[in-house]
Design a protein around this nucleic acid. Structure first.
Lengths: 165, 165
DNA sequence: CTTCGTGCAAAACCTTTGCATTAAA
DNA sequence: TTTAATGCAAAGGTTTTGCACGAAG
């Protein structure tokens, strides 16, 4: 109950994952490293299929199978490195849940864009409500749906949807 | 742009659905009525499978097929009578989105319970944030996860999970 | 050695769809 | 009659799993 606590800052995703794994007698394999690397190579949102497409297409010795990608994503979620933020086209959308400020999303139903905004205000309200119910809150997910700025004014330039391709 | 507006209060789900349907040359069939009736017979949350189980099991002439249940749920969503509030066990969880005050949920990861709370505070913040981003907000969904009151104190009486059966 | 992880293909799930039949308007 | 909806079974798409083989400790 002491040295396991200081996992706060300056620990890389890789280290955090390694710690999570060793705690439960699991191994930081080459494949898990490859998934980790790909996932944390950018801050973009992604879904399983996109990641699988990238990792199974590799021709060098760095290919990772679909099954392993799926299994590793589960571990990354449990390790607190990833979280599901939304659903699009019947797929879960993932994002980093570590080393990145808490935020929520505005989701445009027209073009599918995700707009992030700081969760500060929301978190306060969530904390209050949880306390009032004796609920041990561990996190939240807020999706606001509607239509984004750009999609609101279509008769201008080209069609909004074309911007997504 | 006049008599279509007063759909506010005192209109039954059935009437609202009927109006929605007739607007687009669709029909309020016997099957759709059966689904509607079942869905609005209580305020409980439910998923597709539960509803299908009930409606396809009937032996009297009131059976509704799986395909029709799925199709009708889509219509009810579009009509503004139902909405998806969460995901559990890989299934969408539905609830009434009409004739019921706006609220959000605390979701217990231990026993699966959904605890509702008024969305008033959250809605205010959501409106502010949306305005600041020029986002035409049409609704939101907030899930707070953690552990509920009861599941926090297990060493008492029987095991919390047993209460759910 | 012993345990854990990977890759493959099959299986399991959930949801959608084509089509012939039946029911509304 | 004309158009829409139903039910079934088949197809689609995503995720999980059993198992033999390979890798890590």
């Amino acid at each position: 109950m002491s040295e396991l606590e200081n996992v706060s800052v300056a620990v890389s995703p890789r280290d955090k994952f390694g710690e999570y794994l060793s705690t439960r007698n699991k191994r930081l394999t080459r494949e898990r490293e490859l998934v980790l690397e790909q996932v944390f190579s950018s801050h973009e949102h992604f879904d399983r299929e996109e990641l699988v497409a990238t990792l199974t297409a590799r021709t060098d010795g760095r290919r990772v199978s679909r099954a392993t990608v799926y299994r590793t994503l589960q571990e990354l979620e449990r390790a607190g490195l990833l979280r599901k933020v939304a659903r699009a086209n019947g797929r879960d959308v993932f994002e980093h849940d570590y080393g990145y400020p808490q935020h929520d999303h505005l989701i445009c139903n027209e073009c599918g864009k995700l707009i992030e905004f700081p969760a500060t205000e929301i978190s306060k309200v969530v904390a209050e409500v949880s306390a009032a119910h004796g609920f041990r809150q561990r996190g939240h997910r807020l999706e606001v749906y509607g239509m984004c700025d750009e999609c609101c004014r279509p008769p201008e330039g080209r069609h909004p949807k074309l911007d997504m391709i």
